[in-house]
Design a protein around this nucleic acid. Structure first.
Lengths: 135, 135
DNA sequence: ATACATGCAAATAGTTTGCAAGAAG
DNA sequence: CTTCTTGCAAACTATTTGCATGTAT
């Protein structure tokens, strides 16, 4: 693996994602960084995002619908995706390991990890729904 | 929603996926159907696959890596993806609901579903690994 | 006859890559 | 001065869509 060299763009991308708590897409990062580096290219953003993921500094979330998202939180946790507004929230599962152990019971192979994604309606959208009903 | 009309291509695609227990991609389905309908187009395959998903006859699996896959099993269950050979196996979780209930405890919003994907090494790849070690 | 389905090709979305020029060590 | 990084554009993968023609009802 090639030696890393400092770059102001990469530093800016790292800072942006690490301070961003709403799981931005590559495009969102691109737009954000553009304010500081108007000439930055989307390719550079993608290159650095995957680099940071490899380094374990940020995480990539594949939603299976639309573009991938990036997460400043690299500790094991789950995600909730609102089926209405498509926002993504973190969910801290208490028993991440329990699930893996349970699944291993009737499976021929070695399970090392799992990702759980929840779907439903977020607090915000629930509020709007009730508002409509009562009006 | 438009009324459905019979088509031999759709029937063939449905049969193919329903008899296929290894989670084929659209391309795999395309290749399979091509034997019976050499002129079928990929567009038709995609159109019918999403139609069948809408009808609830098959399910779509987004792996987050590579193309989507299709599943003849529409009952709630989880998937295991081998990080080595990328095969996908079904896993029957005993407590699908327990996980949802547990996650709901500390979450502001309504959770209606979840998908859990496990990662690790499949039985087959484990075998190959041990073979290498002992040789 | 009408409406849905097909094959084909072009379009799209998201992401990756090759390359010449620029910056870091 | 060598190696890594950038910006740009072109390429690529997976999927969707417009349209003229074909097929089911």
């Amino acid at each position: 693996m090639a030696a890393l060299k400092y770059s102001r763009q990469r530093e800016s991308i790292r800072e942006f994602v690490k301070s961003c708590h709403d799981h931005p897409t590559a495009d969102t990062v691109y737009a954000g960084i553009k304010e500081e580096f108007p000439n930055i290219s989307l390719g550079t953003v993608y290159r650095n995002l995957s680099l940071l993921v490899e380094l374990g500094e940020i995480a990539k979330i594949s939603t299976g619908e639309g573009p991938d998202r990036f997460d400043c939180n690299t500790r094991p946790h789950s995600h909730f995706i609102c089926t209405q507004c498509h926002c993504i929230k973190d969910i801290q599962l208490t028993d991440m390991d329990y699930i893996t152990r349970k699944a291993s019971e009737n499976f021929d192979g070695e399970i090392t990890a799992h990702t759980t994604t929840f779907y439903g309606i977020c607090k915000n959208c629930l509020g709007k729904k009730n508002l409509q009903k009562s009006s």
